[in-house]
């Protein structure tokens, strides 16, 4: 049985169909990356898995259990957390409150506590009482990741965590990934930066106009294949 599996996943915004039959697998301890051009449906896919867009029950399976129709508030309690695109911290909560609310719905004890997040991103301990708007983009991204970790997720969904950040900051954030995996989270990355994605992912999925155009381990994929899957022919 796979940790997470999507099964002919489709998604709609009103009448507009954004995803067409996506099949994806994630096993324990894996990191996978989803790449694709803007508007390919990557974020929509993560929102569907996280329950913000609800679909057929058996379109998303967690440990073989159908969860595709469950609301987002349930999904996070089942062990899937999303770091949303653009970070979307709560502006009227302090840094520490943002982290605490991340653990709002959690039931079981797990590795992630405030202290553990602070030791992963030490700068946040210093800024714990600040308003998120006073943080740098990289620090805000650390809060967003820490907030998601506070629910002790088995699956961590990360939407464009490097977007708009300086390369050195991106390196810092990616440096945290191995520690996150050690604590038992498997990771789904949506990433514009293909090189970055290929480096960390066990498998890569490429979306094109709402469809899966390519999937496989990075070492098996050629430049031409990726180019074609990314841009179309």
């Amino acid at each position: 049985m796979h940790l997470l599996e999507t099964n002919k996943l489709t998604a709609f915004y009103g009448d507009f169909q954004a995803l067409y039959g996506i099949d994806m697998l994630l096993d324990n301890g894996e990191t996978i990356a989803i790449i694709g051009a803007n508007g390919a449906g990557k974020s929509t896919f993560l929102k569907s898995v996280a329950g913000l867009i609800r679909g057929a029950a058996d379109s998303v399976l967690l440990d073989g259990t159908p969860i595709g129709a469950r609301p987002a508030a349930d999904i996070v309690k089942l062990g899937i957390a999303l770091v949303p695109e653009g970070r979307r911290l709560f502006p009227s909560l302090t840094v520490e409150e943002n982290l605490l609310i991340g653990g709002y719905g959690r039931k079981a004890a797990g590795p992630w506590t405030l202290d553990r997040v602070y030791s992963l991103f030490p700068i946040l301990r210093e800024r714990r009482s600040s308003a998120p708007s006073t943080l740098s983009g990289g620090q805000q991204q650390m809060v967003a990741i820490g907030r998601a970790l506070m629910s002790n997720p088995r699956v961590l969904l990360c939407d464009e965590i490097s977007l708009g950040l300086a390369p050195i900051v991106i390196a810092d954030i990616y440096a945290a990934l191995p520690q996150i995996k050690v604590e038992g989270s498997s990771v789904v990355l949506v990433e514009q930066d293909i090189v970055k994605a290929m480096k960390v992912a066990d498998r890569v999925y490429c979306f094109q106009e709402g469809r899966l155009s390519l999937a496989g381990p990075p070492r098996d994929l050629t430049r031409e294949q990726i180019h074609r899957a990314y841009f179309g022919s």
């Binding site: 996280a50 329950g51 913000l52 609301p71 987002a72 508030a73 996070v76 309690k77 957390a81 999303l82 949303p84 979307r88 709560f90 502006p91 009227s92 909560l93 409150e97 605490l100 609310i101 991340g102 709002y104 719905g105 959690r106 907030r147 998601a148 629910s151």
Partner: peptide, 24 residues
């Protein structure tokens, strides 16, 4: 209080509050 944090978070961003496990 935690419920107060949930009030403020929900008021800030309804969608992301749900991602935190808040049943709005």
């Amino acid at each position: 209080t935690p419920v107060g944090r949930a009030f403020r978070a929900t008021s800030d961003d309804l969608e992301v509050a749900q991602l935190m496990g808040v049943d709005v």
